[in-house]
Design a protein around this nucleic acid. Structure first.
Length: 222
DNA sequence: GACCAGGCACATC
DNA sequence: GATGTGCATGGT
């Protein structure tokens, strides 16, 4: 089959249109959002970011200087606020130490090396690191999240037992080296999951049905 | 009043 | 190495 992976992207893009991700004004805001959105609805993250903006705390130096308690109270709507306050300070401290607090300087570093460095920050896991790499620094790294697993395993497009790096390799080896495409694709997967892959296990109306029946249908016919 | 949401670190076996 | 648990808010 000639590149199903790429074909799926084209189908999703024509079905949903551009998603305009990542919703942030600066690379640093992407980094903050990447921490805040961990296991959390984006609308709650928006409230937290709005609080930070109003308090003029959307800069590395401001967050570095703030107390954890002060930070926690501002990001409270995003949930896990004590944990995330610590994680934000960890990330900012690292950014200040390694890149003088300037996210754009991360671009100069080799992608694999930068990814390892990000993962060394306590509170930054694979998805958070890859979101920052892709949406804040423009590296062509595919972001895998729970939605990606759900959508692609449900339609039998990847094995259910795939590890994070397996799924990532599937996308990265089947797509052109194009960060804008990677960013749009991930956003479209999230959109697809929210729209069609939540409650209804048959995924009625999902544009991905043309690539294979949902896993559940296989059970019904077996 | 459950259940879910754009994870991660840590404990335990 | 696999599995379980705490972290917490706001919408459906």
């Amino acid at each position: 089959m000639p590149n199903t992976c790429k074909k799926i992207f084209e189908v999703l893009l024509s079905h949903f249109g551009p998603q305009h991700w990542w919703p942030a004004e600066t690379p640093f805001e992407v980094m903050v959002g990447a921490i805040l959105t961990q296991n959390t609805n984006w609308s709650n993250v928006e409230r937290a970011i709005s609080n930070l903006r109003q308090a003029r705390m959307l800069t590395p130096r401001a967050i570095d200087r703030a107390s954890r308690a002060e930070l926690a109270s501002l990001i409270r709507p995003a949930g896990y606020y004590n944990i995330k306050a610590g994680r934000l300070k960890n990330l900012v401290r690292w950014l200040c130490a390694e890149f003088a607090g300037r996210p754009e300087r991360m671009r100069n570093m080799d992608t694999a090396v930068l990814r390892e460095r990000l993962l060394s920050v306590k509170g930054v896991g694979p998805e958070t690191a890859d979101s920052i790499l892709l949406y804040a620094t423009g590296k062509t790294v595919f972001v895998v999240d729970s939605y990606t697993y759900r959508v692609f395993t449900r339609h039998g497009l990847i094995p259910a037992e795939s590890a994070y790096e397996d799924v990532q390799a599937y996308f990265e080896s089947n797509l052109p080296d194009d960060a804008a495409l990677f960013g749009e694709y991930h956003a479209l997967i999230v959109k697809t999951a929210k729209e069609f892959c939540r409650k209804d296990p048959r995924c009625e109306g999902c544009p991905l049905l043309q690539f294979g029946a949902p896993a559940l249908n296989g059970l019904l016919f077996s």
